[in-house]
Design a protein around this nucleic acid. Structure first.
Length: 349
DNA sequence: TCTGGGGTCCTAGGACCC
DNA sequence: TCTGGGGTCCTAGGACCC
């Protein structure tokens, strides 16, 4: 088979859950949710397949998950363990070709150098799983877009190969929401027009899309046909922002309590900045009111800062200008516009 | 029913400068 | 007295991703 381009997408199955199970094998087979606990305003970050059978899925409020599945066991994510497992997965994957990580548990690999990529892929999948003891799914296609949909097609432990020329046919019956880049808003707007599947989207007259989507209509129709020429980009990822935020267990109306929380957030961001030898010029304050409306207010300084007390000074000014005493649900702080010193990036590897 | 935390990218408008 | 266009920097919000 001739592959003009051969791009693999690997997606770890229920990654947080399966990392947890490495250290807690006794919990194998029970419905599990990694993330926030009920009663804490937390959400499920990752649900085991047993939990999914009860309708529990990621991003679901923990309280609601517990209602759906009363025997559900909740556990916190162990970030250092997750990151270590992620590094191991990426290291093994990079043995096969240029690697572009997409998140902690997903990556693209360019298999363009391979004679018969469709034969490599099942072996690659088993190799990653046996080396890391973690289940994974893979997709192989001629583009990133289709490879990503393919890896999700037959989860868990799936291996889906979309041969060259079959991209549009593969996507046709799938809901448009499966496409990377079509989220809740776009999905709902398309549904308004009676468009549910990729084939609906391909066949609709572009004139019908233009009132709602303008120039983006063209992009949408390309997505639905699997048209995507972006290459795998193995260059190291550069962070553009460091931020942290906190949702209070109960909304806060006391200024003192906000300032205490703000000081703590500034400490955390400052520590991260210094760990990566970075300094930044723009400080962003994030506030969410009890009705869930969210505002951000930022200020760019004439010089770069990194110390917690400098962050706190700017953040406090922003808070005082934008908070009138109403109940605060979430408080967040971020720093961006990093300096360009080339040594800045060395801390990442 | 209640909705985390960490990111990226895009758009639109205003200020300012030449 | 009236009024150009382009470029950069900055701010705010929104959609989307895992």
């Amino acid at each position: 088979m001739e592959w003009p381009r051969a791009i693999l997408h690997l997606d770890m199955d229920a990654f947080f859950v399966n990392v947890y199970l490495l250290d807690h094998p006794e919990d194998c087979g029970v419905p599990l949710a990694i993330g926030g606990k009920p009663g804490t305003r937390g959400v499920v970050a990752s649900a085991s397949y047993e939990a999914r059978q009860h309708g529990v899925h990621s991003a679901m409020p923990a309280t609601q998950a517990q209602r759906r599945c009363p025997e559900l066991k909740f556990a916190k994510a162990d970030w250092s363990r997750i990151e270590a497992c992620s590094r191991e997965v990426m290291r093994r994957l990079s043995e096969f070709g240029p690697l572009e990580p997409l998140s902690v548990d997903e990556a693209f690999v360019d298999l363009g150098g391979e004679e018969a990529p469709e034969e490599i892929v099942p072996r690659l999948r088993k190799y990653i799983s046996s080396e890391t003891k973690l289940p994974a799914s893979v997709g192989l296609a001629t583009s990133k877009l289709v490879a990503k949909v393919a890896s999700d097609f037959d989860k868990p432990e799936g291996c889906t190969i979309v041969s060259p020329g079959n991209e549009a046919e593969f996507l046709a019956p799938l809901p448009v929401r499966r496409l990377y880049g079509i989220g809740p808003k776009t999905g709902a707007a398309l549904a308004e027009l009676g468009i549910e599947t990729c084939s609906d989207l391909v066949r609709v007259d572009i004139q019908a899309l233009q009132p709602a989507f303008g120039n983006y209509a063209v992009v949408l129709q390309e997505l639905a046909q699997g048209v995507d020429t972006r290459p795998v980009d193995p260059s190291p990822w550069e962070r553009k922002q460091i931020s942290t935020e906190h949702t209070f267990p109960k909304d806060v109306t006391e200024r003192e309590q906000l300032l205490t929380a703000l000081a703590e957030l500034c400490e955390q961001v400052s520590t991260e900045l210094s760990n990566s030898s970075r300094t930044g010029r723009t400080v962003t304050l994030k506030l969410r009111w009890s009705d869930f409306t969210t505002i951000t207010r930022q200020r760019t300084l004439p010089s770069e800062i990194a110390a917690a007390k400098d962050l706190l000074r700017t953040a406090t000014t922003l808070l005082d200008r934008n908070w009138d005493g109403q109940a605060v649900r979430l408080l967040g702080i971020g720093v961006s516009r990093f300096g360009t010193k080339s040594q800045t990036q060395l801390g990442d590897f």
